[in-house]
Design a protein around this nucleic acid. Sequence first.
RNA 1: UGCCCUGUAGCCAAAUGGUAAGGCAUGGGAUUUUGAUUCCCACAUGUGCGAGUUCGAUCCUCGCCAGGGCAGCCA
Length: 555
Amino acid sequence: MTEEAIHTSNFITQIIDDDLANHKYETIVTRFPPEPNGYLHIGHAKSICLNFGIARDYNGLCNLRFDDTNPSKEEVEYVESIKKDVNWLGFSWNGEPKYSSNYFDKLYGYAIELIQKGLAYVDELTPDEIREYRGTLTSPGKNSPYRDRTVDENLALFEKMKNGEFEEGKACLRAKIDMASSFICMRDPVIYRIKFASHHQTGDKWCIYPMYDFTHCISDALEGITHSICTLEFQDNRRLYDWVLEHITIEHHPHQYEFSRLNLEYAITSKRKLNTLVKEHIVDGWDDPRMTTISGLRRRGYTPAAIREFCRRIGVTKQDNTVEFSALESCVREDLNEHAERRMAVLNPLRLVIDNYPEGQVEQLEATNHPLKPELGTRKVPFTRELFIEAEDFRKEANKKFKRLTLDKEVRLRYGYIVKAESCEEDADGNITCVHCTYIPESLGQDVEGHKPKGVIHWVSATESKKAEVRLYERLFKVSNPGAAEDFLATINENSLKIIDNAYIEPALAEAAPSQAFQFERTGYFCLDSKYSTDDKKVFNLTVALKEDSQKAAE
RNA sequence: UGCCCUGUAGCCAAAUGGUAAGGCAUGGGAUUUUGAUUCCCACAUGUGCGAGUUCGAUCCUCGCCAGGGCAGCCA
């Protein structure tokens, strides 16, 4: 998966192909325009891959533009996280990051132009009245009594708005379009409102801020965007996008195209709801490994390549869709299977004593780091008389499908010897506390005539291994579509985080580097937790479990 | 009961007038010192429904049905 498809085709790239063939454009320019009011999530990754991917595939440009027209919801923390996430996903934007707020002066000028053309007016209806006058989905609206003010009057009033001479909500600037339009966003949309809020980029320079519909199209035009790609809910807004650009004096007129946003099972792709989880401390921040935010996926151990591949596989259309979570997991497994070195770790230790192995002896067995990549080398794994194996890898007795250790039967210890379970000890409650076995000295690295182990299990030396914390995760929600629930907080899976504080890792894992992925053999893929892991106490996150043979459940 | 958009397999998604790609999932089988990986095989007489145009329709036309979006001084 190192080489991604150079050109993935979808209805938008088909339009671009046509535009290029017709010489409508020579260079394709796109943009990714997040509002810095939250962290990016997997849904944004789809848009990022689309916009930056097009720029890459067509040798074009993609701007990163913060759509920061609402200072009361936005923060610099978010702009920083967004830059980091876009870069981490493997993309770089054209030039410096842009901000809609860069264009506030020009936007103000275009508002004046509209007023001068008699196409905008200062309305003094209250917000409630504006809503009443707007009409409904099935009935037309009616004109505001302030709609026919003179140009001069509007100019003076808009100036007063800018100078802070109106209170918030007492006046706003509206485009004069059509109160009877079947597109509600064309019923004299508000294009400027008063907000006495300081802005993270412009400070207290302004007390009036332009609305999205007025800002976005002009920002696109000013940046020379050719294809302005957004999600389906903006389809109606396209009429207003075009109206604004047709009625002001501006060089470019980009075209807007809409695609369907990603819905992922068992995940939430609403910044507002994600924010609730963070603010209510239901999760451990925006980067909680259970979150499908970019930062959460990163901390969980997902790779940029896996996320990009996922976005490639799901495609881009206008159809509503809900992608199964397994589609995402398949992408990380594919990447990690190829790139993650293999290690052994025991999460639920059961003592295994090899009665015929010399006490005190430590043998350094050689283990390959990757079964299909000898170039990744080998490492030493200490083998001793007492080991830990997974408790679930031993049963006193079991049916034929059980491919692990049972009394009087043999298994191979991965990279080591064949052992035969002879007896086990139990506590007062009947829990198995220790298994005694014998090993076959000549079985190291080779089969032995007459011995057919039932399977291969992983292990760790009881005396040479290190203790570690391992965090296992399940889906954050109990239902496949938490976003549709009346109260999505009620669908939280209380068991989504399981902390194992007495896991044992082979010595080589104590050297694990942050952001290095490992496969704990027969268990899953893991990485160090960037937040809680320390030199003294390693903490590993489960990225994704290995697939399990369905026969395993039938044993 | 207005306008806009969308209906191809369990989930994504190609093909856009020439007779239904691919991926995920699922079920079988082979290989395997990871029940992983890898490799084979199976998986839509069918494109929401009904008409029409055509030699031929998933594709064009009309009607119907279903789903989504739109009534923030949010984006």
